[in-house]
Design a protein around this nucleic acid. Structure first.
Length: 290
DNA sequence: AGATCGCCCTGCTTGC
DNA sequence: TGCAAGCAGGGCGATC
């Protein structure tokens, strides 16, 4: 379940092991892995062959490899279970290997996109003048981006007629926050997921952003979150952050702040974990009409 | 255009 | 034991 910190760990791995290398061959083993690429697998491969890869970049949960001398980039999203692995060429193929990228150097390693559930994928896109793939021009900056505008985020929250967790997961308002870190940040802020955004004070919005940043930085410091074997970083090394989670996945366990049993509620075909005492619902349950 | 919701996908877990 | 349902969930496109 890679979110921003995990994707950043992968970006750093790509920067170290892949940037500066020239593509020598591309193999697309599953069409769904390139479904966002207009033109399909063969066009994807043709667009990469012979190109030198620049410095890996990231915004929110998207990462991309600029292709030098051409105004385009390989855009990647890990989805639910995607991994980008740098493996020895001789290593046995992973069960869910979807794309293989070989290099024309003698380093003996290749880049592999492995993805069990196929929510993720790679695609080549033109880049805007500031180097952003055009396909993600609608994605907002993420909270760790130095240019993220806290005041603008607060104004946007006040204008929306929605609730706070929906807003946190809306990648056009702020990117990189998924279900796990949304619940973590809301727990830290003492905010219920159903709180309307329109009623938030500026101080509350900025405080919440601070908690989002704190929980992301804490995850980054230990190399990302890992809940099962699905998520490993670019070199196959698992991250560890699950022991530090205060809300997500802690149904019936005591709140680490007040001891009250944590609760799980079905929410948007997902789950929301919260403390019923620290995170009070925004309004009382509607009375039954008499 | 803002808000909502269904769908995509595989494997593990749970229940009968 | 076997099968079905439930669950995980980001992003996109359809709809109102």
């Amino acid at each position: 379940m890679p979110e921003l910190p995990e994707v950043e760990v992968v970006r750093r791995g790509l920067e170290r092991w892949v940037s500066g290398r020239t593509v020598g061959g591309v193999e697309v083993l599953h069409p769904r892995a390139v479904r966002r690429h207009i033109g399909g697998g063969s066009d994807f491969a043709a667009g990469l062959l012979g190109r030198r890869i620049g410095t890996a970049r990231r915004r929110g949960k998207y990462l991309w490899l600029p292709l030098e001398d051409g105004g385009s980039a390989v855009l990647g999203h890990l989805g639910m279970s995607g991994q980008l692995l740098v493996q020895p060429e001789a290593a046995v193929d992973e069960k869910h290997l979807r794309i293989r990228i070989r290099f024309g150097d003698g380093l003996g390693t290749e880049l592999r996109f492995v993805d069990q559930r196929t929510f993720g994928g790679l695609s080549v896109h033109d880049t805007t003048p500031d180097g952003l793939p055009d396909a993600i021009a609608h994605i907002a900056r993420d909270p760790l981006d130095p240019a993220f505008d806290d005041a603008a985020f607060h104004r946007a929250l006040r204008l929306r007629r929605t609730t706070i967790k929906r807003a946190l997961l809306d990648q056009s308002l702020v990117s990189g926050v998924g279900n796990i870190y949304a619940d973590e940040a809301l727990w830290r802020a003492g905010l219920h997921y159903d709180r309307p955004t329109a009623g938030l004070t500026r101080a509350r919005s900025v405080e919440l952003l601070g908690h989002v940043r704190d929980v992301m930085n804490a995850a980054l410091a230990v190399g990302g979150t890992s809940f099962d074997s699905l998520y490993v970083n670019v070199n196959g090394e698992s991250g560890y952050f699950d022991r530090s989670l205060d809300a997500y996945g802690r149904e019936d366990e005591p709140c680490r702040r007040c001891g009250t049993a944590m609760r799980r509620r079905p929410w948007m075909n997902r789950s929301s974990y919260f403390c019923p005492r620290c995170q009070r619902p925004p309004r009382p349950l509607p009375r039954v009409a008499s």
